[in-house]
């Protein structure tokens, strides 16, 4: 059996006190794993623990040697008044603009503060999703996306998984999780 990309064993994590866990699961190459649960059950905290931003109270996070993780955060930083365009943003993470959906590929020269909420969300998603990584963590990726954007995202996730990447997707959108994930874990 090939070694998993992530091997989580009885993990309890939080900030000043435990928020999530104990939790055990594995993420294999080319797998899309969904994480579901009600608000405040610790879905985002789990991602924060995997990237070292949250405190681990007990348990272990096993990572494959040399593992590169990419994380898309739920709340992008404020961009109002900043002279950054879509091309600049993609260049930061090294994500290629090729194969962007047509409704975004024509907006590459536009400043971020002149894009719609959905366009901005998709751009941030794309920046993290297409960055060189073995594991991609997505936090509520369908926020602000219209049905067309969500369907496009499903296809991109599948392509990324086919290329060998492991994806952990946190979402409250059950339809999206059912459509895209190979299996899911429930919190709370």
């Amino acid at each position: 059996m090939p070694k998993p990309l992530l091997d989580i064993d009885a993990l309890t994590a939080g900030y000043t006190r435990p928020v999530v866990g104990p939790l055990s699961f594995r993420l294999a190459r080319s797998e899309i794993l969904g994480v579901v649960g009600p608000n405040a059950c610790g879905k985002s905290t789990l991602l924060a623990a995997l990237t070292g931003s949250a405190r681990i109270f007990s348990g272990q996070i096993g990572k494959a040697a040399g593992l590169q993780i990419s994380l898309q955060q739920q709340q992008p930083p404020a961009i109002d008044g900043l002279p950054i365009n879509a091309t600049d943003l993609l260049a930061l993470t090294g994500a290629s603009p090729e194969e962007l959906p047509p409704w975004l590929s024509t907006q590459l020269g536009k400043r971020l503060d002149r894009l719609s909420g959905g366009q901005l969300q998709f751009l941030y998603l794309w920046s993290c999703l297409l960055a060189a990584a073995d594991v991609v963590l997505l936090d509520e990726p369908t926020n602000n996306l219209d049905p067309e954007g969500t369907i496009f995202l499903e296809r991109v996730l599948q392509r990324r998984a086919d290329a060998g990447c492991g994806l952990l997707v946190v979402s409250h959108d059950q339809r999206f999780i059912n459509a895209v994930c190979h299996r899911k874990i429930s919190l709370g």
Partner: peptide, 17 residues
């Protein structure tokens, strides 16, 4: 690039260690 990444993608940067 590091300064811009720290502003626009702080969690991405942290996830890379």
């Amino acid at each position: 690039q590091r300064l811009l990444l720290a502003h626009f993608f702080p969690d991405f940067l942290r996830a890379r260690g």
